[in-house]
Design a protein around this nucleic acid. Structure first.
Length: 471
DNA sequence: CTATGGCACGGATT
DNA sequence: AATCCGTGCCATAG
């Protein structure tokens, strides 16, 4: 309501308008940047203006005027989140690392102890300064398991380097201390570890093939089937599985693989660069949340006024084309604004509703559906779907999670489940867990408990506290 | 016999 | 219209 009257954006919606907005809506920050750059390259009516900076904090801004963060510094508390479009492009790097010469030398790195810096310290000597920045980029994109689930092509595009170059660096990373870090999947991590291990000790035959061809069977412990696939006996397979769980770790960032883990396909939860950053304005418990909707080049796009003025000078056969370029350009700008505006409104609601989740973690996730938000915001459900799909948000604690996590219907139950199992004295069966959950007010079937366990990577009861191991 | 995973169906969600 | 998720039934492993 507010926004409709104040926004210069609302005008009779044409089908082109609608189509463009829709297509922009589903793009991630990086895709958006590519899209805009392509348009800039092909459309002379579009012009890239100067970037605006906040005069007090220096933060790049989408609009001239006082920075939304600075202007709230004094009053920055309460439930109301500060949501705005931010054109910053250094979002993928911890701010400390962005010096002009790439990654600063070891003194600075040595300060912290997190995984990225730990690995970087090991491999930095072997890298050219430029490559250190790239390596840092790769390392900061690891997920919590130490896997790199971002397609390499994204880095290649971003740094304008061939993928082979990225692979070369990645290879160094993978062979550094938590061996296998930076692999694209648990499977990849195992293979790297196997390779490194093989250089110093002997490994059971067929282990490599078992991992390559039968990873999912392996993780589901379907040893008989796997044996058939590989043409070896079940006991051999068990031997291999034993070797793997003793010596290898599919999640390099975790210390040991206590859980033989989710049978789900790898492809689904790909981590992207964050499209949205959420941080706290200050350290007060009731601090406002600062939400930056990343939109590359926001506020820098204009219609090229020279082009516009000279349209009447166009050669007769080009008039239509030039006119078209102008319309195209103005359409893009308007739709971009509309897209960002919608996402801002969306995030405003989401961060208000999920404030506790954002600050305090999974257990505090509120049940939330896209449909209800669509209703509140007076937009089509599909708009919300598109706006949420494929995007990632960086939480105040630095974790990057898919935006769709905010809509997870079962997460809070799954965290309950994890707690129950963490506190159990004796392995509880699924049926018992279901009963416990019911007491806590979560009505779920026994079968569903099993699914949740799988999703959380928790072993079945009889394998959790094994009194003895077979084999 | 019990606990669990696979498969498949139906309802909800996107 | 397509997809995801919870659930019931049945086969299988221990």
């Amino acid at each position: 309501m507010l926004q409709q009257s104040q926004a210069p954006i609302t005008r009779p919606i044409t089908t082109a308008h609608l189509a463009t907005t829709m297509s922009l809506m589903s793009l991630t920050a990086i895709e958006l940047q590519e899209r805009i750059e392509a348009e800039l390259a092909s459309n002379p009516a579009l012009e890239l203006g100067d970037r605006h900076y906040c005069t007090s904090c220096g933060r790049p801004q989408a609009e001239k005027g006082s920075c939304p963060v600075c202007s709230r510094l004094s009053t920055g508390s309460g439930e109301e989140p500060i949501v705005f479009v931010s054109p910053r492009e250094d979002f993928y790097l911890p701010s400390r690392q962005s010096t002009s010469n790439g990654i600063p030398s070891d003194e600075i790195i040595a300060e912290t102890d997190d995984l990225p810096t730990y690995v970087l310290r090991q491999i930095a000597p072997e890298l050219a300064p430029d490559d250190r920045l790239l390596a840092a980029h790769l390392l900061t994109s690891l997920d919590e398991d130490g896997l790199l689930r971002v397609p390499l092509i994204e880095f290649a595009r971003y740094h304008h380097r061939p993928t082979s170059h990225i692979e070369q660096i990645l290879r160094l990373i993978q062979r550094a201390d938590p061996v296998g870090v930076g692999s694209p999947s648990p499977q990849g991590a195992l293979l790297v570890q196997l390779e490194v291990l093989g250089e110093t000790q002997s490994i059971p035959p067929m282990t490599d093939q078992a991992i390559r061809q039968g990873m999912d069977l392996l993780s589901r412990r379907h040893f008989t089937e796997l044996g058939k696939l590989l043409g070896i006996s079940t006991s051999r397979v068990k031997q291999i599985a034993r070797f793997i769980s003793d010596n290898l770790n599919p999640y390099p960032a975790r210390s040991h693989w206590g859980s033989v883990h989710q049978g789900v396909e790898p492809a689904q939860d790909v981590y992207h660069f964050p499209d949205i950053l959420i941080s706290r304005l200050n350290d007060n418990p009731d601090s406002s949340l600062v939400v930056e909707v990343i939109s590359p080049l926001a506020g820098m796009l204009h219609l090229n006024s020279l082009f516009r003025q000279s349209i009447h000078l166009a050669p007769p056969d080009k008039v239509d084309e030039w006119q078209n370029d102008l319309e195209q350009a103005s359409l893009l700008i308007k739709c971009l604004q509309q897209r960002n505006h919608t996402i801002v409104r969306l995030m405003q609601r989401i961060t208000a509703i999920q404030r506790h989740f954002i600050l305090h973690g999974d257990a505090f996730l509120e049940p939330l559906t896209r449909a209800s938000l669509a209703d509140e915001l007076q937009v089509h459900e599909s708009t919300i779907s598109r706006a949420v799909a494929g995007k990632a948000v960086q939480l105040p604690n630095g974790k990057i999670v898919p935006l769709s996590k905010m809509f997870d219907r079962s997460l809070h139950i799954r965290t309950e489940l994890r707690q129950i199992i963490a506190h159990e004295c004796r392995p509880l069966t699924d049926t018992e867990i279901a009963a416990l959950l019911k007491k806590k007010g979560h009505r779920v079937a026994r079968r569903t408990v099993a699914k949740y366990r799988a999703k959380e990577g928790i072993l079945p009861a009889h394998l959790r506290q094994p009194l003895q191991t077979a084999g």
